[in-house]
Design a protein around this nucleic acid. Sequence first.
DNA 1: AATAATAGTTATTGACCATAACTACTTTTG
DNA 2: CAAAAGTAGTTATGGTCAATAACTATTATT
Lengths: 158, 158
Amino acid sequence: MPPSKPSTTNATTAPVDEGAVRGLMGYNVKRAYIVLHSAAQQAAAAFDLRIPTFSCLSVIVRNPGITPSALAELLKIERSNLVVMVDELETRELVSRTQMKTDRRRFELKATVRGRRLHDKAAEAIAAAEAACLTALQDDEQQLLLALLNRIEGSMAD
Amino acid sequence: MPPSKPSTTNATTAPVDEGAVRGLMGYNVKRAYIVLHSAAQQAAAAFDLRIPTFSCLSVIVRNPGITPSALAELLKIERSNLVVMVDELETRELVSRTQMKTDRRRFELKATVRGRRLHDKAAEAIAAAEAACLTALQDDEQQLLLALLNRIEGSMAD
DNA sequence: AATAATAGTTATTGACCATAACTACTTTTG
DNA sequence: CAAAAGTAGTTATGGTCAATAACTATTATT
């Protein structure tokens, strides 16, 4: 990293040096994440969903009968934290939770028709909100970005 | 996105469909962020620093005399939340906080020698921890990733 | 049958972010 | 100049999200 020596004194007026942090990949990833997340959050709020709750619903829609444990593992959230989300989804009748006959410890999660409808609308709105944040990148650049991000995640997989 | 129709039933065994979320850039950014952040966090913890606190220290080191307000604006954190971090840095004698003569509402923040030393060591450790997460990417790919991320952030600047 | 492991739950904690309300001080402006 | 408005820092508080420990019920192991 370029040393960019500190100025001897800095009264708010001068251009501010972001210091070592801007050189860190994690900082830059976080800043981009905040942009995308707040846009997605706002879009999801229109459906009374928070992002983690939407993620749960989305996976349940695509995987009827998935168990809470499998869902938690996939989304990398703690089962204990999942409970309250599924509770809410069930209360709102977006998801059904039925005990399995073969193993009564387990539950099958399925989206209701209402759940599927809400999911589809929310997914569209969130995707649109994201797209508005990504206009600075061409389609192929977005694909490239995605691939690079996934290689970071993939290289650290358990 | 490819529709990838839901299977009629899915008992944990089958490959799980991540649903709409994997198609969202924000989700992918977050997953990569978690990898980088937890590595950085662990490295920072060895110096009894959390990442936001380290970021504050880092900017103060590079900008002697910066005010809390300018610091908060740069790091995009609330002034109210900054107070506790600066409190801690001051208590640990890593940073000094002196009232300005010209405007007694403002304070000048400066890193102490101890603060600079700790910062330099922590910055090195954090950078090393990050590098270990980025071995899957060549140097030029890392630069590309950084540029793409910054274009997202930049396009949404106030 | 006793023990261990698994699935789900509850309660609690901590990190982090955001807001409102406040004090002290400075700048604006009538 | 005095009143009003704005700025800097602070305090208190609440919300979201993540992580842990301890618990119950059920199934698998030996």
